[in-house]
Amino acid sequence: MTSLSYAAPTSVDAAVKLLAGASGLAKVLSGGTDLLIQMRAGRFKPELIVDTKKIPGVIGIREENGAFVVGGGTPGAVVEAHAGMTKAWPGVVEALDLIGSTQVQGRCSLAGNLCNASPAADSVPALYAAGAIAVVVGSNGRREVPVESIPTGPGRTSLAKDEFILEFKFPARPARSSDAYLRFIPRTEMDIAVVGCGISVTLDANGVCTAARCSLGAVAPTVLLVKEMADVLIGHKLDADTLAKLDAAAQAAAKPISDKRGTAEYRKKISGVLARRVAQIAFDRASGKATGKTH
């Protein structure tokens, strides 16, 4: 009485044709760690599922002159195991390392996390802070857009029905650059962010910030790229005054709601707390004071 078609095309063109030709709801499947659960919960009843994992380029990481290109469906665990990504983008990697459990990380992907468009997604603030570029493919060809242009609201994206993310481009890093991500959860794992914060910085030889991108998760309908936080950092060392201003900027930018995961008032305060802590880690990494995992 209900039917569901599944296809696993081996080319972008074939996938795009399938999506464009679907009469009912068609969903793109990467790792499936959100989609399958949402289907089981009855949130979606798709007529067609297009699995992207057999398309060349969707899974895998390649380095191009210091930049990295990560296939949209690359499992989190593969990114975590990649030495180049871990060195250049420890914040992105540690964000992926927080999603679900070890088992989930064997499947979950950056494209899936971004396109699920949850404001609380862990890897998304890190992607925003990193300034990653999404390579989108569809009937009208290929376009490259900043990741922050993809989510438009909870569960909603700017992608057309026949579009999906093929891969992400992470720019080459100048010297003394690094990033960090922290989230707050009531438990220690297997939980959804009450607040998430990603920060990427570049420092000069004196430790003064010359470039920064900052983001907050779970405090608005989408993840926020917060210019005001970056402005506080750029041109300054991370001293007490800068940290206090960063805290205030984060709290000002956060527009949270009260829900089962936390009150608005609490989320605002935690935005400031996390911003300070994340900035400290990112600055320490960029200046070579700290390496490796923080959590």
Partner: peptide, 10 residues
């Protein structure tokens, strides 16, 4: 997920 029993790492 939101009825939070402790997990092992807690």
């Amino acid at each position: 997920l939101d009825y939070r029993c402790p997990v092992a790492s807690d």
